[in-house]
């Protein structure tokens, strides 16, 4: 179980990271706001991967603990945590050398949903439940 969940976490984390990089590139070309000093490519990939792996651990624990209700609780928690994590970029203080800090949340906030989005999209490919 954990092996499949971990694989799903890694793949969805990587996918979220790639989506984050594409989005950051688009955001830069549209707004000319370069935040690569604080949200570098490596940090975007690493944080997305961390989100995916943490999701795998959480999913495994909740599925073992709550059995059939585990996935329901996990999905709810994953969405709530992703939403609550929006406070981080809103409150984040950038180096004052960076212009237009007000554009920073606009770049990072969507990225906070990418790991959950990738997980929910890919989950049926990795963990199948028998049809009742």
């Amino acid at each position: 179980m954990f092996k499949k969940a971990l694989l799903l976490g890694i793949v969805s984390g990587l996918l979220a990271g790639i989506a984050g990089l594409i989005y950051a590139h688009l955001y830069y070309s549209i707004n000319e706001a370069d935040f690569s000093k604080v949200a570098s490519s490596i940090r975007i990939i690493a944080s997305s991967l961390t989100g995916g792996v943490l999701a795998a651990i959480g999913f495994t624990i909740l599925s073992k603990w709550l059995k059939n209700n585990g996935e329901i609780v996990f999905n709810l928690l994953f969405s709530v945590i992703s939403f609550a994590s929006l406070l981080m970029p809103i409150a984040y203080k950038l180096p004052t050398s960076l212009e237009t800090p007000e554009l920073f949340p606009g770049m990072v906030i969507p990225m906070h949903f990418f790991p959950a989005l990738a997980w929910f999209t890919l989950k049926p490919l990795f963990i199948r439940h028998p049809v009742a």
């Binding site: 809103i90 409150a91 203080k93 212009e99 800090p101 007000e102």
Partner: peptide
């Protein structure tokens, strides 16, 4: 520039 858009 405080480094935070909301604070600015």
């Amino acid at each position: 520039n405080t480094g935070n858009g909301l604070q600015n």
